[in-house]
Design a protein around this nucleic acid. Structure first.
Lengths: 245, 245
DNA sequence: GGAATAGTGTCTCTCAGACACTATTGC
DNA sequence: GCAATAGTGTCTGAGAGACACTATTCC
């Protein structure tokens, strides 16, 4: 390449196709609660590479329509789930020469939480099947495409860790919920029971949820319904939940 | 593209140059302590775009020599500092159509901590000057190239937040250090004084540092020297440092 | 009344903050 | 002795865990 004297002339003579650059994509671990299980959305790949294998949903950036990575992720999320995202968070970026048979590739991994109601699953040309599977089942029995087992694991660990000091699980429930339902959700992710009184004290003292005035009428004593306020969906606590001593 | 029937034939006919893919780079915020200041390494760009502007060090992945993103970062780190990294952590990935005048670009940002001794600064063809500047000065007076002000800010916030519940600042000191020196380092990053007794109680109880047996002989009462043990460089505490009430 | 779930009272324990105190050096 | 820095003793307060208790529903 010559040595241009201004940025304008540099850009004019710049041709991206002269360079070797990696393939770049996004992938997502989308979590939801269903039947007292923490589930993750998987797609069966309809195209090469890894055609026919289960994988995390994701895909390439559309340089023409996407203005930012967030646009790419939102678009993909909408293609698969018909939108209902209450929390979206970038987790990590994976890049190396071997993870994709097409060559050097980079993928930016996101974790999304979606509330357990009103999910419609859609399919498109790149995935012939879309399913929700319990995280434990995937970990134990599924060989996902590319390095998606590793990516999923890291997203799951991030979720578990954040449950200890944030109010993130609120994003897995519908707009209104009871404290018992919320506690169940925390316990499901943490994998152990937490003490009822501590849990309620903590959540109520944080001033992040408020009573709706309504009650959930079930089979026994009715429970107060709450909703999250402005900061409720990602409040940071000063101390971790430690679990049973 | 046709519809190949096997992954092998798919790969054979696959040509990456048929697709529009973003430029992909890595950038680093390298932190160190010097003269009681938290400093960040900046380079003055020797080439277009943004020639002559200050920027975070970084660059493109070399698809031939780098096997992974970590290789890329380590290579860049070595080019600039001659290596001395005690902590390296991926912070976030930024990607959009506008951040680089060459077009859609993605950069993976890392934060590195290097211990305050034995730093040799090197220059290379892509940066004519390399300097350590106090973070506060950069924030207040420097317009960095691209979106590097934002990237640096996010790295700095990540560092500050982690100081509240990890032992990360150990990585900014030489192998051996006194508790007073360690406390100073915590305070420098947090921006406020912490209580001596609490600090020492916390660090000592965590069982992550051990006495070397040596003493630091200064101008007054000599202080015990400590070194970090295996987990010392990134221990997680259950409770945050909260600061003065 | 009994089963089931919601919700409370209250004790203990851990650990951070506060702050006054003692210890060891150089001058 | 004094100044300066290292290091301790000990109180308070916030908030987590434990666990027994009460409250309200359906049957």
């Amino acid at each position: 390449m010559s040595s241009p004297e201004t940025q304008a002339s540099f850009l004019e003579s710049y041709n991206i196709h002269e360079f070797d650059i990696p393939l770049t994509s996004v992938d997502m671990a989308i979590f939801s609660i269903e039947n007292n299980n923490l589930k993750v959305l998987l797609v069966k790949r309809a195209q090469f590479p890894s055609k026919g294998e289960w994988a995390l949903p994701g895909g390439f950036i559309n340089l023409k329509t996407d203005q930012s990575l967030n646009d790419t992720v939102s678009r993909k999320l909408e293609e698969k789930t018909g939108v209902n995202i209450s929390h979206l968070e970038q987790v990590a970026t994976y890049g190396n020469a071997k993870r994709d048979p097409r060559g050097w590739s980079v993928t930016i991994a996101y974790m999304a939480l979606i509330s357990s109601k009103n999910i419609t699953l859609l399919t498109d040309e790149s995935s012939e099947e879309v399913v929700w599977l319990p995280i434990n089942e995937i970990q134990q029995e599924y060989q996902l495409a590319f390095d998606h087992n590793i990516i999923l694991e890291e997203c799951y660990q991030r979720l578990r860790r954040k449950v200890q000091y944030t109010s993130l699980p609120i994003n897995l429930l519908p707009k209104t919920f009871t404290l018992s339902e919320l506690q169940k959700t925390f316990e499901l992710i943490l994998g152990y029971a937490i003490e009822k009184k501590s849990f309620r004290r903590r959540l109520l003292a944080a001033d992040i949820i408020e009573e709706t005035g309504e009650m959930r009428v079930g089979s026994n004593r009715p429970a107060k319904l709450y909703r999250a306020n402005d900061v409720g969906k990602e409040h940071l606590f000063q101390r971790n939940i430690e679990g049973p001593r």
